[in-house]
């Protein structure tokens, strides 16, 4: 029961937070002036008229990072369940070695990305 209680409080906080934001925006709406002009609504590009579309296609370089991240972060979720029990009675060294093997996989992945030049920009 504690389990659900804890998260229901968290849920409550989230609701409070949303309320807070809503109230703040609502109040702001009452307090601020509304005088839109086409110039104001123009996309800002250092004072000159914008060139081309805002959603331009950009370098895809970051994609590789997100890739790396997804792989590693997901692997690391295995770390947490293990981290809490590996020192408990009956596990000990062998479990540790297993996790080192696992970390070894992560390290190989990193090494691979490094050697393949993913981390170099030029």
């Amino acid at each position: 029961m504690d389990y659900f209680h804890g998260y229901s409080v968290v849920g409550l906080v989230a609701v409070v937070g949303v309320l807070f934001v809503a109230v703040a925006f609502g109040a702001g709406r009452l307090l601020r002036p509304v005088v839109p002009t086409p110039e104001k609504l123009l996309t800002y590009e250092c004072g000159v008229d914008p060139v081309g579309e805002g959603w331009a296609h950009t370098q895809i370089r970051y994609y590789v990072y997100s890739f790396l991240y997804v792989v590693f972060a997901v692997d690391s979720i295995f770390l947490f369940p293990w981290a809490t029990v590996f020192a408990a009675k009956g596990y000990g060294g062998a479990t540790l070695v297993e996790m080192f093997v696992f970390l070894g996989f992560l390290a190989v992945g990193l090494l691979y990305a490094w050697k393949k030049g993913v981390l170099e920009w030029t």
């Binding site: 805002g54 959603w55 970051y62 990072y65 991240y69 590693f72 972060a73």
Partner: peptide
Amino acid sequence: ANKYSLLGGLRTGAQLMAYEL
């Protein structure tokens, strides 16, 4: 819908990914 914003957003994302791990 601003090029600079988009770049900034992407940088934020990349940064998060790099440092979250």
